[in-house]
Structures are given as C-alpha cells and as structure tokens.
Simulated scan of single mutants.
Amino acid sequence: MSLTPPPTTKSTAASTGILRVCGPDANGIVAAFAQLLYGHGCGIIDSENHADHEAILFFERIHFDYSQMKTDRHTLQNGIEEVCQRFSMQAPQLDWGDKRKKLCVMVSKYDHCLWELLLRHRAGELNCEIALILSNHPDLKEIADSFGIPFHVFKVTKDTKAEVEAQELALLKEHEIDLVVLARYMQIITDQFCEAYPVINIHHSFLPAFIGGKPYHRAHARGVKLIGATAHYATADLDEGPIIEQDIARISHRDEVNDLIRKGRLLEKSTLVTAVKAHIEDRIIVYNNKCVVFDG
C-alpha cells in the first residue's frame, strides 16, 4: 500500500521583533506582556528579564514572532504602551526587525578596529549595514575602498570644529545612520553629536590612571599586571559613559611595550565588536549611566 504524502502548505517567512521595557519592579509584568502578545497572535521566541533590587527597577527583552499576528502593528504597539502605562514603565523600545541598522564608523590612523568591524561584517557576524566611514585623515581610504564603502575625510581644527561637525551630522542624516562607532577616532566629539546619535567608543582601560599619550609605555614603566579595553556609549562626560563591554589580559615581567600594545589591540578589537553586536541586536538597556546587556 502506497502512502500519499500530506498536502504541502505555503510557508510564511517569520517576521520577528524585539521589545525592550524598563520600569519599577512589580508583580505581573512578565505575564502581562506574554498575555498581550498571545492575544494578538504573536509567539515568544525567547525572553530575558532582570531586576535591579537596589534601584527597584525591572528590565525585560522579548524576541517575538509576529508573522501570524491577528491585528496590525499599530494596534499591538498601542497595547504595549497601555501595559507600560499600567506599570508606570518608561516608553517601550520596539524594533520590528524589518530594517537593518545603518552604521557610520569614524577612524583616524589606527586601522585594527576598522579591519575587525569590516571583516566580521563580511563574515555575517554583524547584521547591519556599514554605510560610510568618516575620518580626519586620508590614511585608511584604501581599506574602505577595498570593501566598497564610501570614505569621507573631514579635516578638524579647533577653529573649524563646529563647522566640520555640522557637515558630518548632515551627512549622517542624509544616510539615515542609526549608530556611530568610534573605532579609535582620535578626536573629541561634542555634546550635540552624542545627543543626535548613539555613539559607541573604544579605549584602553588604563583610565584614569594613564590619561593622555603613550599609555602602554607608562603602564609598562609601572609594571602593570593587567591591561584591558572598554567599550561604552559616548556622552558629554567623555570616557565616563555607560559601559557596554570590557575585557582584560594578564601581563608579566617578560612583556615588553610592544607586547602590551599587541595584546591591547586584540582586546580593543574584540571588545568593540562585542559591544556593537549587542547594540544592533537590541540587547542593551541604559539606565543610571549603566547598561543591562542581555545574552546574545
């Protein structure tokens, strides 16, 4: 007896979104959002939450499938906002997942972080579009050209800083940039820049002990036993913004200055990519100059 295969059904490509919420800790928040999504025909793919007992705050990230949604986006968004109001939560952060984030990378002369971002992006590890690269020097243009990414040079002086930054911001707006990444960009950006776009910066973790030039040389002279890298959101307080990711490497008496620099650059590359990946995957919630970074 032959078996007739069941009729095939047309598959529906999954449409997935990410909801992030933050507010006063209270009973029933998880259930309220789960019931809301279920009622609209959405399925929860994964969910993670965290309670800061000292701050009495609750954080949740929900990755959900809305391909079989019974209503529309506007109706679901209204429902989410109603739940947030009921629990006195902040405005929800909702990404429908149908548009890749567009990045602008800003560099100077150091190329190691730029290479890492471009290669990881080419390997498919960063689900975004690197739309353009800005620099205050022409040195890294060949790298940008080899990846087919527009490269713009803006010479910056103390007298022209405001004018040049206005031109840069206009270019970012034209390209509809979502995130700016300072990949060892050796210029201070203004408060207005940080207010216009989320900006991720990378630097060594010697601060505040070794501020200024040649930190690895001075660290070697002091005989440090640990070096590190810190990726954080840039704010008006320069290197004091919310920390996203950090990493360290041990140093011994056998390590020379070049060894410290080499190990430091490895840390900077991996730490920056980890932070950028967390941002573009909507895994970060910022509060009280800190970050909740959900698992990837």
Rank of each mutant, 00 (worst) to 15 (best):
E174D: 15
V156A: 03
L76D: 02
N27I: 11
D282F: 07
E268F: 09
P7D: 12
R262L: 13
L260H: 04
H217G: 07
P208M: 01
L3S: 11
A278S: 14
E125F: 15
D282E: 10
V273R: 06
H50R: 11
E54D: 14
I284K: 04
E195S: 08
N136P: 01
P5C: 03
D145S: 08
G212Q: 12
T4P: 01
R20Q: 13
A32M: 02
P24C: 09
D237T: 13
I284A: 08
V199Q: 02
H217A: 12
K10N: 13
V105D: 06
A26N: 13
L172K: 03
L19I: 14
E174A: 10
G241S: 11
C22V: 02
F210C: 14
K277F: 04
H121I: 07
Q167Y: 06
I251F: 14
E240P: 00
S11V: 15
V181Y: 09
E245Q: 14
T157I: 12
A209W: 00
T8G: 07
D46T: 09
I29A: 03
A170S: 10
V199W: 04
S146A: 11
L172V: 04
G79R: 08
V180H: 06
R86K: 13
R262Y: 11
A13C: 03
G228D: 09
D191N: 15
K102C: 08
D111E: 15
G223K: 05
V257P: 01
L226C: 06
I227R: 07
N27K: 05
